[in-house]
Design a protein around this nucleic acid. Structure first.
Lengths: 139, 139
DNA sequence: ATGTTATTTGCAATGAGCTTGCATTAGTGG
DNA sequence: CCACTAATGCAAGCTCATTGCAAATAACAT
C-alpha cells in the first residue's frame, strides 16, 4: 500500500487541485531548486492558468507538509523550492557569473551537529550549506 | 605603519564621513551580525542623524571594500552585516524561536572545498553555512 | 584658510519578493 | 448531486533593498 501524494495531502485536510497538480508536476520534472517566479514562468510556458499568489500559497503548503524543501542559495536573497520525494539530503553550488546551479551529493555535517549541540547547548534543527563560485564556462 | 580604516577607504577613493564613521562604530561595538534595519535602530538610539538609505549604501560600500561581511542566516530572508577586522572566518546558529544568534568558531569546510572543486570543476568562491535550532531557553 | 571637485547624503520614488483580505470557484465525501 | 470547506484570483499591502537627483560635505590643492 503506497501512499500517493494525494493521500498525503488528504491526510492533512488538503485537496489535490488543478493548480497544485501543476506546481508539483513542474517540481517533479525539474532537477534543480526553483524560485517562485521561475516556477510561475514554467507554468505559463506550459499554458497553465495560475496566479503567482497561488504558486506561493502552494509552495508554502507543500513545504509545511514536508513534501517540498525551501532553501536559500548563498547570497541570492530569495527562496527556492525543491521536491523532496526520492531525493537525498544535499546541498548546492551556484555560479556567481551565470547563476548555474549544481547539486552536491555530500553533507559532512552530522558529526559537526553533535559538536555544536554540545558546545552551544542549542538543539540543532536545520542547517544550510551553500557554495558559490565560478562554473567551468565562466572561469 | 598600520593602515587605518580611513586609509583603506581613501585607497579606494572613498571618504571617511560622519555617517560612515557611525556605521563602522556600531559594527565594531556589536559582536553579532546586524541587519540594516537593526543597525539603523542602533544609530537612532545613539542620536545619529542618518537615513536608512545611507545605511544601506554604506554597508554596500564597506562590503565591496572587503571591510564587512554580508551574510544570510538560515531561512531568515534578509541580509546581515558583520565587521571583518580582527575576526576569524566563522559561522552562526540562530534560535528558531527567539532569534538569538550565537557564533560558531569552527569551519570544517577547507577539505570539502577542494573535493567540490575536483568534482564540479567549479572554482569555489564563498560558502555559507548557517544553522538554526532552539537555544537553551526555548527548548 | 579658502576654493574646487568628486563623493556622499537625504528625500522621494521605485522595484523585487512575498503576504493578506475577501468574494468567488471548485474539490471531496456523503 | 449537495453541502461544506479548501483553494483560487484579484487587488492591495508589506518588508527589504535599490535608484535618481539636487544639495551638502570631505579631501585635496593652492
Amino acid at each position: 500500500m503506497k501512499t500517493t501524494l494525494k493521500d498525503e495531502l488528504r491526510a492533512a485536510g488538503k485537496r489535490m487541485t488543478r493548480t497544485r497538480k501543476a506546481v508539483l508536476s513542474v517540481l517533479e520534472d525539474t532537477k534543480l531548486p526553483l524560485s517562485a517566479t521561475e516556477l510561475f514562468g514554467q507554468l505559463q510556458k506550459a499554458q497553465v492558468a495560475i496566479d503567482l499568489v497561488t504558486v506561493y500559497r502552494n509552495l508554502t503548503a507543500l513545504k509545511e507538509l514536508g513534501l517540498v524543501t525551501q532553501l536559500e542559495l548563498h547570497q541570492e536573497g530569495q527562496f527556492r523550492y525543491e521536491i523532496k520525494e526520492g531525493r537525498e539530503h544535499h546541498h548546492h553550488i551556484r555560479c556567481k557569473t551565470c547563476g548555474r546551479i549544481v547539486d552536491l551529493l555530500l553533507c559532512p555535517l552530522k558529526k559537526l551537529t553533535a559538536l555544536i549541540e554540545r558546545e552551544t547547548r542549542f538543539v540543532v534543527g536545520d542547517h544550510s550549506l551553500e557554495f558559490s563560485g565560478w562554473c567551468p564556462k565562466c572561469q
